[in-house]
Amino acid sequence: MKKLIALVASAVMFFALLGSLGFESTKAEVQLSTEKETKSVRTHASTVEDLLDDQGIKVEPHDELSHNLDDTITTGMQIDYQSAKQVTVKVDDNTEQYYTTADTVQQFFEAEGISIEERDEMSHEQASSIQDGMEIQVQKAFQVALNDGGETSEVWTTANTVSDFLKQQKISLKELDRLKQKDTASLSKEQNEVTITRVEKVTDVIEEQVDYAVVKRNDKSLAKGKEKVVQDGEEGQVVKHYEVTLENGEEVERKLIKEENKKDSKDKIVAVGTKVQQVQQAQPSQQAQSQPSRSNSSSGVQKTLYMQATAYTAYCTGCSGVTSTGINLRANPNQKVIAVDPNVIPLGSKVWVEGYGYAIAGDQGSAIKGNRIDLFMSDKGAALNYGRRGVQVKVYGN
């Protein structure tokens, strides 16, 4: 009996094994590739979807699959599946979400048509692998109008503030330099100007001449109205130190900070005659002969002339400002002096000119010949307006 039972059990096991072998032999063998692995799978699944369900893979709309889900499973089938990863891209202030099966950032950007320039700034390298949940930040470069010390240029940048821009461009400011904008000011496509004023202070040393003074002293040994230079004047010299402020290379301010006396000036001393000469009365015969042009009255007039008069200044073309007799007209603008022809009116003579008053015949000129005189005036406008006039001239002598 025991032998019979054992025989029956062995038969059952044999047929069970045979059935199992037959079931296995009916399975289809396929290759399944995912981003993690590639493996061979034997399956009784009838469709691709059934196979992926058996492998615990749920296909989402953005995933990539080499076959349709309802495709029939056949032996030797190669099935490729890649799950899509969620990626967030922030370009400046714009944020968008994407799903991608790309392997790298560069492939992802190319697939999505996202344009990136070399000058733009990105949070990840383009060769970086795509990770699920990755956030990529992109700052697009824009142009800034830079004025640095008067030199202008257009500069590409991704800086958010003026301070960041200066650091990015390696631009340093010195102590006196000025920024038109605050260093914390924002930069953008709309606010895209940076202006730097370069300020420096330098010392300028200048040597200047100092005019000498003209000192007049009465001299009773000289005839009244006559002058004689006793001591020539000499100009002095001072050294002036200026602090000069330059902005973008242009002078905007100058301050005198020190003055040194290098050489003292020396006064010009002029003796002025005070001696009054007695004029002898002319004989009646002489008076008759000279009556049209001379007068020997008690007034001291030696002769009266009718002459053509013009006017000049101490700064006329070719003028030195010093007369032929040594009178400095620039230093003595109120001095009454006329230029004469010495053959008509002796130099040093005291004269009276109609409309001009008392003066000294203290100068001469190449154009002043014969019946002509030239009146000194300190004001150029007055000299020009004087023009040419016929005047009466009284000569008193030296």
Rank of each mutant, 00 (worst) to 15 (best):
S40Y: 05
V199M: 11
K350S: 14
Y98F: 15
V391W: 09
Q237N: 05
N334D: 14
D164G: 05
Q209I: 03
G273K: 00
D183E: 15
S366T: 14
N296S: 08
A127S: 12
P292G: 07
Y212K: 07
D92P: 03
Y315V: 10
Q137W: 02
I171Q: 06
A271P: 02
L32C: 04
S20F: 15
K58I: 14
T152D: 13
Y242Q: 02
V395R: 00
V337T: 06
K182M: 13
R294K: 05
L384V: 07
E259M: 02
C316K: 02
L375G: 02
K3A: 13
E118F: 03
D103F: 01
P333V: 13
Q107F: 04
V162K: 08
T195R: 05
I373D: 08
E24T: 02
S40A: 09
F142S: 06
R330C: 07
F15E: 08
G326D: 11
A16F: 11
N343Y: 13
A309C: 10
R294E: 15
E247Q: 14
V229K: 04
Q106S: 12
I57Q: 10
G348S: 09
Q231Y: 03
V391D: 12
Q181K: 08
E251H: 01
F108R: 04
N261C: 02
K182P: 06
T158G: 08
F15Q: 06
F15M: 13
G76C: 01
G365C: 09
R389N: 07
S188W: 12
V270A: 06
I79Y: 02
S320G: 12
E253L: 14
S128W: 00
V214N: 09
Q126W: 00
Y396K: 05
A102Q: 06
E64T: 09
A45R: 05
V105W: 01
T75I: 04
T197F: 10
E200D: 14
E96M: 13
F165E: 11
G233H: 12
V244E: 07
T317C: 01
E112P: 01
